[in-house]
């Protein structure tokens, strides 16, 4: 599923005398089976952008094209439910959307809404729960007696359950312990690598951008300042200081090392493991 964003602007309706665009004139396209990171400071419009991608918000001007769907003002979106089945969004702090009496029911809530039949539902909750790293004892627990991180994982499982083609995740690891955060990031990466899903990740973690993303969108004050590869972004000092982001530590180390070993291929350095691999090659 290719996503094409054309001249998209979005302004929140408000009573305030002074309105500012939350997004202005965004142009971008996201290819099928890509891993795209969206970065930008708090309030830069990341969450607003992703909500424009499945018809939760309708662009004030401009449009979003996804296959046959055209999300545009004044054009009624046909079969919006089907669109939302294809584009799953895990919201920022998704733990607040749980409501069923037990975890299993909550996970199956989405699939049921999208018309999965009994056969498809059987064993589904257990399967996705395992994917997010929780065992089946959680199935019958009430979602309200879980810890924050467990709730988060259940909420993510609730989206994975209806198997969207494009998975959009908004700061999925904020406030989680590093180990769980890692697991969840690996989960998304596997969905991308093995199941060929398109992943759109909103994040503040530059390490994750470097490690997982193929492309990165940088927003600032509602404008798309850059749409490039993580490697190019982190090599562009000016852009980085403009966006007020820091280079990931491992890349800094790699850059220093490159002074001594000029053959080191920085574009292949994604995390500690890949850095060590590269280093072995040149030493």
């Amino acid at each position: 599923m290719n996503i094409k964003i054309n001249h998209l602007s979005y302004t929140y309706p408000s009573n305030q005398p002074f309105k500012e665009d939350a997004l202005s004139d965004i142009n971008a396209s996201i290819k099928s089976n890509d891993f795209v990171a969206i970065i930008g400071q708090t309030g830069s419009g990341k969450s607003t952008l992703i909500q424009n991608l499945n018809g939760l918000l309708i662009p004030t001007t401009g449009q979003v094209e996804i296959e046959d769907y055209i999300i545009k003002k004044k054009v009624k979106l046909k079969n919006i439910k089907q669109l939302r089945k294809k584009i799953g969004i895990v919201f920022q702090f998704p733990e607040y959307q749980l409501f069923e009496e037990n975890v299993e029911k909550d996970i199956l809530f989405g699939p049921k809404n999208f018309g999965f039949n009994e056969k498809q539902l059987a064993g589904l909750a257990k399967k996705v729960l395992e994917e997010v790293g929780l065992d089946e004892t959680f199935l019958k627990k009430s979602p309200f007696e879980l810890s924050g991180g467990e709730k988060r994982r259940v909420a993510i499982a609730g989206i994975l359950a209806f198997d969207p083609e494009v998975l959009i995740v908004d700061e999925p690891t904020a406030g989680l312990d590093p180990q769980t955060a890692n697991k969840i990031m690996e989960l998304f990466y596997n969905l991308y690598k093995k199941q060929h899903k398109t992943i759109i990740l909103v994040t503040h973690q530059m390490e994750d951008v470097l490690k997982y993303a193929n492309h990165v969108m940088a927003l600032k004050n509602g404008k798309l300042e850059a749409y490039t590869t993580p490697f190019r972004l982190f090599n562009d000092e000016k852009l980085m200081s403009h966006l007020q982001i820091e280079m990931p530590l491992i890349l800094k180390i790699a850059k220093e090392t490159k002074k001594k070993y000029p053959d080191l291929d920085l574009s292949k350095v994604k995390d500690i493991d890949s850095f060590v691999m590269q280093l072995k090659d040149v030493i």
Partner: peptide, 28 residues
Amino acid sequence: KAQASRGVDFVHGKLKEKAKSITSLIIP
């Protein structure tokens, strides 16, 4: 919005579906 992403339709639907969609909003 979060529930709409999970396929809830707050506008259309039969009475029973409506009741369910309201529950999915009220409880959280």
